[in-house]
């Protein structure tokens, strides 16, 4: 008898490399989080465990403003992009093939096909003209820019959900005296809800994490959490910067975990 049972799934070396990969993926992040809990301000000079830098960050007005901006932009951009993506998905995944459907699909994914720095600077140029013309310098620009590149992210799970949906269900609803709107409200929408929620959350995370487009589109003095962090990096690294990073990390992990749990739940 051989020691190991023969298996076609076993490839020598895959498991060790995978373990190294997982460790390498998580170790730096864990080191960063650990350093954020240093009582002292200098990274690497451990002065005991403390959450004081988290308290300091949250007590900081600039941080709070940036966090508030980030949340407002992410929430509205996710709301807008998810609504638009839902409508578009309903248009192109149902019923007979629409002429020009391939074109719609390409346009919906277009923001993903352009390097982010190019989109960021191009938007900066165009929006600068509008800023000058209107005199408005508010969060609207960030919201519009984020809504745009969030559409393909929101679109993906919604489309996947719609494609897996049985069209006969809507036919059955119509057969049972439901009008178009009633069918949508009672059958299509509830079945689509997990996809819409997942799309919303992905769009929210993508917006929350964005640094490049935000850096170029934001008006002077305006900060989101990532642009604030980017600005802080110009100064010396400190435990507080790591605490801010850890907070940002925590925010996105929470949303991703929630969306993971939702999409895993069976209808």
């Amino acid at each position: 008898m051989s020691k190991r049972k023969f298996s076609v799934r076993h490839v020598p070396g895959a498991a060790p490399i995978a373990i190294v990969t997982f460790v390498a993926l998580y170790a730096p992040v864990l080191i960063l989080i650990a350093n954020a809990f240093n009582a002292g301000p200098v990274i690497g000079r451990w002065e005991g465990f403390s959450g004081r830098w988290f308290v300091a960050a949250i007590g900081n007005d600039a941080f709070r403003n940036a966090a508030l901006n980030s949340l407002i932009v992410a929430a509205l951009a996710a709301l807008i992009s998810t609504s638009l993506a839902t409508m578009a998905a309903l248009a192109i995944t149902r019923g007979r093939r629409l002429r020009g459907e391939g074109g719609i699909f390409v346009v919906l994914n277009q923001p993903l096909l352009v390097p982010e720095i190019v989109l960021a600077i191009a938007l900066m140029i165009v929006l600068a003209q509008i800023k000058q013309a209107t005199g408005y310098h508010g969060l609207g620009y960030l919201i519009v820019a984020h809504s745009t590149f969030c559409i393909p992210f929101a679109f993906m799970p919604i489309r996947a959900r719609l494609e897996g949906m049985d069209l006969t269900l809507e036919t059955a609803a119509m057969d049972l005296y439901a009008g178009r709107f009633y069918t949508f409200r009672r059958v299509t929408l509830p079945l689509l809800a997990p996809g819409i929620l997942a799309g919303f959350m992905l769009a929210f995370v993508v917006s929350l994490d964005n640094v490049v487009v935000s850096s170029f589109v934001k008006s002077p003095g305006q900060e989101t959490l990532p642009t604030y962090l980017m600005g802080e990096l110009r100064r010396n690294l400190s435990s507080e910067i790591y605490a801010i990073s850890a907070l940002l990390l925590f925010a996105s992990v929470t949303v991703v975990a929630a969306s993971w749990l939702i999409t895993r739940r069976k209808p």
Partner: peptide, 27 residues
């Protein structure tokens, strides 16, 4: 039906055209 579906897709297409494709054209 075709008109209805196009009008559903339109808002997303307009937003992307205005804030992603147009800036690229300006570039």
């Amino acid at each position: 039906e075709t008109r209805r579906r196009w009008s559903l897709a339109m808002p997303a297409l307009i937003v992307i055209a205005l804030f992603s494709i147009l800036p690229l054209a300006v570039m």
